[in-house]
């Protein structure tokens, strides 16, 4: 049962990764790792910034 739950959790985490849902977490990790003085963006700020940057740097999608 535990193994099953762990497996499901793994699948969910994988999906989150593929969809890019864990982007903020990764940003925080990076921010922490390079340890500069400024506080990190809040989650709301981060997503706003991420979307707005896509306005000027569009990512292609294939046929």
């Amino acid at each position: 049962m535990d193994a099953l739950r762990q497996g499901l959790r793994g699948v969910a985490a994988y999906f989150r990764g593929v969809m890019g849902a864990d982007a903020y977490q990764k940003y925080l990790e990076h921010h922490e790792a390079c340890g500069h003085g400024m506080p990190p963006m809040t989650e709301r700020q981060f997503w706003r910034d991420r979307m707005d940057r896509q306005d000027t740097e569009p990512q292609g999608r294939c046929c």
Binding site: V18, G20, K26, Y27, H30, E57, C62, C63
Partner: peptide
């Protein structure tokens, strides 16, 4: 690395991500 555009990504996750970007109706 900048935590935004340049982010080290687990190879299996990136495989799925890349596949989703290349596969479409074609």
């Amino acid at each position: 690395a900048d935590g935004k555009d340049y982010v080290r990504t687990d190879r299996n996750v990136l495989f799925g991500h890349h596949f989703a970007a290349i596969a479409g109706a074609g």
